[in-house]
Amino acid sequence: MPSIPHSDILLLFRMSRMDIRKRYLGTLLGSAWAIISPLITTGLIYVVTIYGLKAGGAVGNASYVNWLISGMLAWFFVLEILSTGINAIVENSHLVTKIRFPLRLLVMVKVVSAMPIHILLMLILMLLMAVQGVGSFAYWLQLPYYFLCATILTLGINYLTSAAQVFTRDIGSVMGVILQALFWATPIFWRADLIANSKFGFLLYSPFAYIITGYRDSLFNGLPFWQRPVETVIFWITALFILFFGMLFFQRVRPHFADVL
């Protein structure tokens, strides 16, 4: 990955701050929606799972509500980046014609602007867990590793989708369908052991399942990532390939952005 000049780093953080403000501009509750929305969604899924499907109960060392929230927060972080990153170039078409503007920053902005809310929500969850006496702080220290995993994976995907969206707006619709499928195919609100030995066990090797499971391993299970060697190797091969190919595709088609937009 090419290095980013210091001036570009400062610009990246300024643009990320502006992106957060713009997202909630004109709403009555402002940026509070960034917390309210995931809490409402998580609450609805919890009610449906517990009272509708009669599922739930303890999952390993965690109560179902803590287990569910941890997976949902990890998923919301990924979903926020991917759903907004698709339009990173299209919605900033006025910057495309500026020859000296580093367009790659527009993709990075969507990743960085999603970080503060995710970190805040995770800190709230860990505080509640600490009050309950759940989990081990020593294993919580590996959460930044899985945070990095999510960042690398989503950044690579955003390079691909944001560039492709310039040429065909169908990418947004296709990505919406894919994200819906991933939500149901990833062990977010269902236990991974239920399909581990079935014909659907391959779903547990997806990079998204690796991240979700990793968050829970760190928070509840006390399992270090190096004890998941197969999943770790598969994840990094997949994530780095997507990042490399995404950046390459972005750079190849970038000269044509201005012509299309």
Results as ranks from 00 to 15, higher is better:
W75V: 12
Q132K: 04
H118Q: 15
K110V: 13
Q132E: 12
A58S: 13
S93M: 04
L121V: 13
I117G: 09
S31N: 15
A138V: 03
K110D: 03
V107A: 08
V112C: 08
P102C: 12
R21L: 13
T84N: 02
G52N: 15
I20C: 08
T84W: 03
A34V: 07
P116C: 04
V109E: 01
M122R: 11
T27D: 05
M129G: 05
I36Y: 04
I36H: 02
R104G: 00
M129R: 00
L125M: 12
Y64H: 07
I99L: 10
I89S: 05
R17V: 01
I124E: 09
N87E: 08
S93C: 03
R21Y: 06
L79C: 10
L106S: 01
N87I: 02
M126F: 14
G30D: 10
L39V: 15
V47F: 13
W33H: 02
R100K: 15
A58R: 00
L25Q: 11
V112K: 06
A138H: 05
V78T: 11
M115H: 14
V48E: 14
V65W: 02
I117F: 04
I81A: 05
A34T: 09
L53G: 12
L28S: 08
A32I: 06
L123M: 13
T97I: 07
L82Q: 07
M72V: 15
G52A: 15
V111S: 11
N61V: 12
S93Y: 04
V96R: 14
